[in-house]
Design a protein around this nucleic acid. Structure first.
Lengths: 219, 219
DNA sequence: CAAATTTGTTAGAATGGTCTAACAATGTAA
DNA sequence: TTACATTGTTAGACCATTCTAACAAATTTG
């Protein structure tokens, strides 16, 4: 069975592969905040366990089993986040740190109960998909707000970044998942967008923000 | 900050001191299922941290700070058990293993929310008192059923042992906290007691069982 | 292409938590 | 009170996870 440390390496590899495609050692080391020799030796030991494939100077890949372990950790993480928000009344900006710890708890029934109490959710509080109990994940295909056109009506569906600072920024603008936005205009010089929603007749969102907001186009 | 391992040593010392009075190294080692040299070296390091007092060949004692750390871990454990039973519908015989893991989570808000959702409970699902947020514990003074007399009416209030096997035995007899029992007779040869309650007009309980049941005497 | 930069590797060490083997102190009982 | 049993100690080792220092391969760039 994987240790918590190993689980974190597998999870990082999984997430990096999804975000970047090819993953190399220095990216892995950076993402886990460890030195390269540390990552290097850990990768060798994960390879011995049959969870990672690695050849010197080549990119890293997860084996099938490695992917499954990673997906199931991510499942526990995202179920926990959902539980904290829906059952325990946490804000979506407060759940990451706690979930980061609870994802390593070994107690199948605990997570099954969460799942059941939540009505078997398919996404977490930030719109990210929750892998199923077999570790299968259905990728969601939303559009970044930055690709939408003036005149379109869209609904906020997910985020590509869930840092506390970004979530607090969204809170300050009353933006949450489900919010419907009308796109009023887009500045072609800096890609800034002006949108309206709920009690906000006109908000200006930077390119950086628009890239991180994933939307469902409504018409 | 104490590691999970250190927290477990402090917790064992706390519980052993409560149950046995004086605690020696071999009891500690046995209770944590580690070898004596392991316990010995850990105790030395806990002493350096200021949590344990120890002199060669003498009994072990916790410092004030050590006691507080232990009590707060026990608080997290018991709150978690209560949460699992009351909110997540676990049976009282299923919660120990999970709580054993969750007690090491560092997330004050998580436990504050549990406490609040549960209405600030003072005892766990087995009747053991929950230390307050400062680590202060109010010991409960119940009588072992084995000390009660025929003719008395009593109410089941707590257990001195919460092993899965004992809890499953109680389940099989429909005995739970709050159950009111009438003591019909006591066999002076082997201290076996005959009691009646709810839909059980006559159940015979062994001395071993009666010693582990703590009751409130009703009249 | 050659030089500079980035990326990766090896060696060697540290720390936390564990063990076994061997020995020493303490307590109990013939 | 001497012998035996229990309890505790020391020394030395191992594994997981981490580090720094030094060097080597690969990639980028002038």
């Amino acid at each position: 069975m994987a240790s918590s440390t190993e689980e974190n390496y597998l999870k990082s590899l999984y997430n990096l592969a999804n975000a970047e495609g090819e993953v190399n050692l220095s990216e892995l080391a950076a993402s886990l905040q460890v030195s390269m020799p540390t990552a290097n030796s850990m990768v060798k030991s994960l390879q011995k366990s049959g969870w990672v494939m690695y050849e010197k100077y080549k990119p890293l890949t997860l084996t099938k089993e490695g992917k499954k372990i990673a997906a199931l950790i991510i499942r526990k993480h995202r179920l926990t986040e959902m539980f904290l928000v829906k059952v325990m009344n946490f804000g979506w900006e407060e759940v990451h740190e706690v979930a980061e710890q609870i994802e390593h708890i070994h107690a199948p029934k605990f997570f099954e109960r969460m799942d059941q109490m939540l009505g078997f959710p398919t996404v977490d509080p930030h719109g990210s998909p929750i892998p199923d109990p077999q570790g299968k994940i259905t990728p969601l295909s939303y559009t970044p707000l930055s690709h939408a056109k003036p005149g379109q009506n869209v609904q906020l569906a997910a985020l590509t970044n869930s840092s506390t600072e970004f979530l607090e920024f969204l809170n300050s603008r009353n933006l949450s998942l489900g919010t419907q936005l009308s796109i009023l205009s887009k500045e072609s010089y800096d890609q800034t967008m002006v949108v309206s929603y709920a009690h906000h007749p006109s908000e200006t969102l930077s390119e950086k923000v628009c890239e991180r907001l994933l939307v469902r186009v409504l018409e």
